[in-house]
Each structure stands twice: as structure tokens, then as C-alpha cells.
Design a protein around this nucleic acid. Structure first.
Lengths: 331, 331
DNA sequence: TTGAAAGCGCTAACAG
DNA sequence: CTGTTAGCGCTTTCAA
């Protein structure tokens, strides 16, 4: 009911023009204090709330940003979203959601929808982007920041960690503690990020002249659990494993323990991301800690700068990762 | 660049009035096929995308809905969001995000922001709502649906499960399988939903004249883990436990096993929600399955009806729950 | 410091 | 079936 009040009502009651009301809202400094206070009072009295849509149309700025993600049912995406939402709030932006389920077509649709919604900027979390998509993105004038990934040419602003180094370093640590048969756990889908992690693993393994051992499982956790059991029933267990995801690491570890192995004595396990999952396994999971919340927060902050045409030092922000050692490794 | 094209450009090039273009977009049936096709072609040719903001202002419908949640770092909220996003997409609504961190003030702010954004409806996931907030909600003309909770008076449309019955039933099953010392695991925050679960537990326990045993832990999982260990160091373990959340169930179970108990032989454990966590514990967790995705999807669908003033049979939708028995119980 | 007036890009009567 | 004409509620020159 109360939302029928417009800027006209305020202007009339405060006995000023609507331009003045608009000014106290947007450029309070340009209005005499006395007038300003009177207007402010009327606004409060009437419970006036400026219509963001009308404002958007007139100013050609929606103060909305779009968030495109493959799904929310992934801990990393959710945590990012909290970071995004907090910073967006601070800078008075609203966030528009779009879930693509990793389908190309939907990702394109989402994009079109965002543009049509007149968002001022876009945050994009994509597991895989084609050249074509990157180009489309580059051709729009609307600023975009990639969350936790980047395009191969580094042409799109992005916030992420150095996955390759992280994977390299953690593999090296496992080598240094004496492991020789170190496996890398990954999934069928060839997402760029996972390829980077794999590259880091291979680099460390190669430098030490150890035999690489890449184990590929199904993307769907329920399915891969079965595969883990098969693995331990039929193959020789490695000394240690690095996994692209915490969940896979835990599933693998559980299968190992159920098959009679001891963790970390017989098998050391390291995950990636430091999700809540790591605290639920027994033993708790050692992992590469990715600052997920910060990725979202920093990306949103970067986007605000881009939207305001502020000078940006570096369009690709690499955040620090770290390692968390828990019960699944010896250390 | 391509977004500068307006409905005027299309009209001119297709040699029709802008009203006709608007019609092919909104009421294609009212335009002669030949004209329609010509317009459609021009639209495609020019890459015209209607400006959602202008449309919103003119039609007084934004086709946006607001989603207010305490946080995304909770598996249940995330899954709901996927359900919401999918249905919203199907009905051509966009979703606006707002994270409140369960702070009263922010919840109010969020609400104001949503109204100012001219959303056509709101989905609200709140762990706790005061009478005052419910009243404010009721006083706005904008339709609202509660996600997975309800107000005590049942005055606000809501989609949820019958938490009390679910808890009652699962407690009964534990009683029927011979357990006598059955504890209920909960947290300090007195959220309505948890109170309902507790009520169900107490009812079952009371009916069987068993002694109730309510164990309260810290809300923050990292903290409660320590408390679990203290518990098993100092107190007599129960025969079975029902937990308000999967995570707490798992933390408790891990502490029990680490203290030398066998699950499920010495201690049966049941969680609530059926999150991904349940598959990561060893043994896997038996739980009350809550159709989280569906709660989101159904709520969004209900909201579309409310926004269109369609007749709604029942404004409070109770979805079915079920029980999933895994390794943490005997069965 | 304030007001008048011209739109922003579109929808929705109302005519024709 | 199509065009004309008012706005939707606000921002933003331009004058005063």
C-alpha cells in the first residue's frame, strides 16, 4: 500500500519541486540544508521509497549486477555468493541470479537475460568457456569479472588463485615426505581449472622423475563412490593422492579405509578447496585452502571499479592459497 | 554496443509503429502473421533486446522476485536456490538476491531494498521471525512465500515439511528398534524449526515414558566439535541420537567413534535434511530426507500464482519427507 | 539554490 | 489488425 507514494507526493508536501527531492536523494550537497531537512522529513513521514526501476530508466544505471553460476549445490559457489552479496550490499548494488547447469545454451540465455535486465556488470562462474563465448563477452560493453577461473588468453578480468602452483606445491610436499606412488584424482569433465591442477601435479611428478598416475572418476559423487570401491578391490593402492575436490578425496579415502587400509599410515590424502566437508570426514581432510568467500568479495569489488570506470591496476587478481594439514596426512 | 537499439529502431526498419513491435513481443496473437514475421526478422537482424527496466516502468510489473536468505553457506539454502532459479526461469522471472546473516536489521533493510527494487514477489528463508516482522510483511501488498518455515499463526503462505511429525516418527522408529536412552541433539539458537523437531522428539519420548535427554551444542560447527569430544570424555553415551542437522549428527558420531564406541552397534545416529554430508561420513549417515530443491521449486511456483492473482487452493504447502537408512543405524 | 521541462524505452488504452 | 497518444517515476540539463 505504502509503495504508491512517488516523488511528486514528497515534492508537493515539502513544497519544493520534484527536482529538489531528486537532488536531496542523489546530490544532497547541492541543496540548502534547511530545504534538505524538510524534504528528508517528509520522505520519512510519507515512507517514500524511490522506485528503483524509474530511477534506472532515467539514469541509465540500474545498480544491478548479474551473477551467473552453474549451480548452487556446490559449496564453493555458495561461499562465493556470500562474499559477493556482502560487498554488493556495501556498494549498494543488487544481485541478479542466473543458474546455467553448465549448459552452453543456458549460459548464453542467461547472458542475454542479464543484458536485457540492464545490469551494470556481470559476475560469471563458469567451469568451461568456449572462445566464442569469451568473444561475445568481450564485445559487450558491459564489464564482467570471472569468478575462480579465467579465459585462456587472460583477456577477461578475473579473480582466482594459482591452481597450478597450488597443486604443484602440494604434490611436492607429498614427494618430500617420502611418497613415491602419488596419484591424482580427477573427474571425466575436462574443466579448465582441473586441467591446471593436473598440470601442477604432473610438473612436480615429472621433476622428480616419478611415474604419473591419473585416476579418473565419474563426476557424480554417488556414482564415483562405487568406482572407488572397485578401485581398491582391483588395483594397487597408491601411497598418496591429491584430489581436485574435497568430496572426491573423502570418498576415495573412505573406500580405502573400508578396504582395510590405514589413513594416513598407508595412504595420505589431500583435497582441494577446504569446504565444510573436510571437517566431517574421519580422519579430517588435509586440503588446499582456497579463499572462496574472498574470491567472491574481491570480484565484486573489482566489478564496482570497472563499472565506475575507475583505474584498475590489475584486471587479473590472484589470491593466495594455503595448505591445511589435518588427520589425513602424516606431517 | 548492440544494446543501444530500441523499439523505435525496430519499428522504423520494419515499417510499423512501435506499438506493433510491442505487440509481437507481448501479444503475438494480435498481430497479422506476415507483419509479425517481418518484425521478428528485424528484431533478430538488429539484435534488439527489449529493455526490461523500461518495460517494468511502463507495465508496473518488474517480473523480478526477491530472495532473502540468512546465508548461502548452508547446504539446504543452496539447494533451495537451485529449485527457485529453475522455476523462476521457466516462468520468466528474474531472482534478486539478499543475504541477511540472520540479523534483524539487515532483514528489514533487505525487505526495504526489495520493495524499492519493485519486485513482484518475495521468497523469504528466515530462521526466526518476530511478530512485528510478520505484520510488516502482511501489510505490504506484495506477495510473499516462506521457504521451509512458517509464522506461528500460519498467516503467510509457506512451503515446508512437517518437521514435528518427521522428528516424531524417526524417534519412534528408534524406540521401536529397542533403544531406551535416546538423545536429541540441538543448538543454542532457538529457531522455530528446531523447536518443532524437538517437540516431535519429546512427544515420542513422552508417549513411551522414556526419559528425555536434550543435548545442546554451539551453533558453530568448529566449536561444537570440541564439545562433542568433551561429552564423550565425561558423560555416558546414549543408545541413539536424533539430530537437528546432518552436520551435528556427523560431528557427534565421529567423536563417539574416536572415543571407542561402535556405530551403529553401540550408538545409532540419525541426522536431518539429507545433505551431501551424509555421503561423506563413515559410516554414511541415516537421515530424515527433506525435499529441499522441491521446497524452493514449489515455493517459486506458488509465488507465481500469487503474483498473478490466481486462485490458490492452499497457501501452506506441506511436502512429504521420508527416511533414509544408511550405515549409522542398525536396521 | 531551485524550478521547468525534456526525456529514459516501453506498455496500454483508445481510435480507426 | 494497426497506429496514436499518454503516461510509468525518476534524472538531468538548462535557466532563472
Amino acid at each position: 500500500m505504502s509503495s504508491k507514494i512517488t516523488i511528486y507526493d514528497v515534492a508537493r508536501k515539502a513544497d519544493v519541486s520534484l527536482a529538489t527531492v531528486s537532488r536531496v536523494l542523489n546530490n544532497p550537497g547541492r541543496v540548502k540544508e534547511k530545504t534538505r531537512n524538510r524534504v528528508l522529513e517528509v520522505i520519512k513521514e510519507l515512507g517514500y521509497r524511490p522506485n528503483a526501476i524509474a530511477r534506472g530508466l532515467a539514469s541509465r544505471r540500474s545498480t544491478n549486477v548479474g551473477l551467473i553460476v552453474p549451480t548452487f549445490s556446490r559449496a564453493s559457489i555458495s561461499e562465493m555468493t556470500d562474499g559477493i552479496a556482502d560487498v554488493a550490499d556495501k556498494y549498494n548494488y543488487s544481485v541478479f541470479l542466473n543458474v546455467t547447469h553448465n549448459e552452453r545454451e543456458l549460459q548464453t540465455d542467461s547472458w542475454e537475460n542479464m543484458i536485457a535486465s540492464q545490469v551494470d556488470g556481470v559476475l560469471l562462474a563458469s567451469d568451461q568457456m568456449s572462445e566464442e563465448e569469451v568473444n561475445r563477452l568481450l564485445n559487450e560493453t558491459i564489464p564482467t569479472v570471472l569468478l575462480g577461473s579465467r579465459d585462456s588468453q587472460h583477456r577477461v578480468p578475473a579473480v582466482l588463485i594459482d591452481y597450478e602452483s597450488a597443486s604443484y606445491e602440494v604434490t611436492r610436499k607429498l614427494i618430500e615426505s617420502g611418497n613415491r606412488d602419488i596419484a591424482f584424482l580427477t573427474v571425466k569433465d575436462e574443466f579448465e581449472i582441473n586441467k591446471l591442477k593436473e598440470a601442477g601435479y604432473l610438473k612436480a611428478i615429472g621433476e622428480s622423475k616419478l611415474p604419473p598416475r591419473i585416476l579418473t572418476f565419474d563426476d557424480k559423487f554417488e556414482v564415483s563412490i562405487g568406482e572407488f570401491n572397485d578401485f581398491f578391490a582391483n588395483e594397487k593402492a597408491p601411497d598418496a593422492v591429491v584430489s581436485i575436490r574435497d568430496s572426491i578425496a573423502i570418498g576415495f579415502m573412505n573406500a580405502a579405509i573400508n578396504s582395510g587400509l590405514k589413513v594416513p599410515e598407508d595412504l595420505e590424502v589431500v583435497g582441494f578447496q577446504n569446504t565444510q566437508y573436510t571437517l566431517m570426514s574421519r580422519p579430517q581432510l588435509s586440503t588446499v585452502s582456497v579463499p572462496t568467500y574472498d574470491i567472491g568479495a574481491v570480484a565484486m569489488r573489482l566489478l564496482t571499479k570497472l563499472m565506475n570506470n575507475e583505474e584498475v591496476m590489475n584486471e587479473e587478481v590472484i589470491l593466495n592459497h594455503s595448505f591445511i594439514w589435518r588427520g589425513s596426512t602424516k606431517k
